[in-house]
């Protein structure tokens, strides 16, 4: 990266003096509660699947995630999720509902360019890097785990 010149550095100081800071502590508190609430709802869905359907604690994860993503898509479609996102920040971005929002918002946005070039081509514009780095890191973690088991370091 190009180094900043002296005048750029002193300007940065002036700009910093005027900048409005993110209310980090407040944002963290909001994110904690909203994120936590989303997870509580997710847990409730899981319990429902275990109680009323033939799912176990191991297998109830996938249908629960689907339901949460579906709910987030509905909220995105009716224009609520972006408002929630502005309020909650990471609280609504980190859970799987945030992933659903990233996919569906891009799909809605690019509907005007048609189904193939628009929706299909742009749906994973934001979520694509989540998938790529999720798969890549899963590969490395799995490789490390396999090696550790082979060498008898972990059981």
């Amino acid at each position: 990266m190009k180094k900043k010149t002296l005048s750029q550095q002193s300007y940065q100081q002036l700009a910093d003096a005027h900048e409005r800071k993110r209310p980090v502590l407040m944002n963290c508190i909001k994110a904690f509660f909203v994120g936590g609430l989303i997870c509580v709802i997710g847990q409730a869905v899981t319990v429902l699947f275990i109680t009323f359907f033939p799912f176990t604690e191991q297998t109830a994860g996938n249908p629960s995630v689907s339901v949460m993503v579906f709910l987030s898509m509905i909220l995105t479609g009716i224009g609520v999720y972006d408002r929630l996102g502005q309020f909650a920040g990471a609280g609504s971005a980190v859970p799987v509902t945030g992933f659903g929002n990233a996919v569906i918002s891009a799909a809605i946005e690019h509907r005007t360019e048609g189904f193939v070039l628009g929706v299909g081509g742009n749906m994973f514009k934001l979520a694509g890097s989540v998938i790529v780095f999720g798969v890549v890191s899963a590969f490395f973690i799995a490789t490390i785990k396999t090696l550790l088991i082979q060498w008898g370091i972990i059981g």
């Binding site: 409005r20 800071k21 944002n27 408002r83 929630l84 996102g85 918002s105 946005e109 934001l126």
Partner: peptide, 17 residues
């Protein structure tokens, strides 16, 4: 927003700046 930032309905948090 579509061209420079994120889709309209994307729930990203905008900073106060």
């Amino acid at each position: 927003e579509k061209q420079f930032r994120y889709p309209t309905e994307y729930g990203g948090q905008k900073p106060p700046t």
